[in-house]
Write a protein that binds this DNA or RNA. Structure first.
Lengths: 108, 108
DNA sequence: AGATAACATAGCCATATAGCTATGTATCGT
DNA sequence: ACGATACATAGCTATATGGCTATGTTATCT
């Protein structure tokens, strides 16, 4: 279904570097070099990670002068949270129904 | 930090096949062949996907006779939901703070 | 104007991933 | 006992991913 794009979002989060970048961005926007600083990684390698995050819709960016500022886009995170919450609830519902069933069985 | 394992969970969900399997399992446990049926894929290929899900802790399984039954493990999903919710909230807090700031500026 | 800074692009390389076929093993049905 | 069923394992292949260096482009600084 829509699982194709959702899979891309999960894929973007499936890497320690990108996960750390998202965590950092949750505290506010930052430039590319600020974001790259904590990582012992060549520039181009890091830029690829940013591209993955942006392609997945987790991040937006705009360039002013020679510095590009990156911002978290909450839409993708909201989507992930919603999907996970829905399936957790559904599973929880199953468990509750099973509990009721076992209870009924016990009272016969 | 703990990001390493969380990345593995995201990685397990970063594939349409595995995502669909999780969706199916949210409705209740199923055997390997039941799970595999919707997919036009060779048996061993599908088994690899199940192994990825199980290694990531998203799924548990037990074999009885010749059939292995697979069950969703809610712990990993809970973890994902918690992480996403935390960072969304943090980001939302930033936005709210910015709103307050702009409002104060407007009133001077 | 020239040097430096901040990305951006191109292209290479090693490993990981996702698929396959062929074959093996342990149950189950008759 | 024997064939069929339900996984499991081994090993191959093609493409994707994540890293690098080298080089280019566009602002900013002095």
């Amino acid at each position: 279904m829509l699982s194709r794009d959702l899979a891309a979002v999960f894929g973007a989060l499936a890497d320690p570097t990108r996960l750390a970048v998202v965590e950092r961005l949750a505290q506010g926007p930052a430039s590319v070099s600020d974001l790259a600083m904590p990582f012992d990684m060549a520039g181009p390698s890091f830029l690829k990670h940013l591209k993955v995050l942006e392609d997945a819709g987790l991040v937006r960016s705009a360039k002013k002068g020679r510095v590009r500022t990156v911002t978290l886009d909450p839409a993708a995170l909201a989507w992930v949270e919603d999907w996970v919450a829905r399936h957790r609830r559904q599973w929880q519902g199953r468990l509750d129904a099973l509990g009721t069933f076992l209870e009924q069985e016990a009272n016969r």
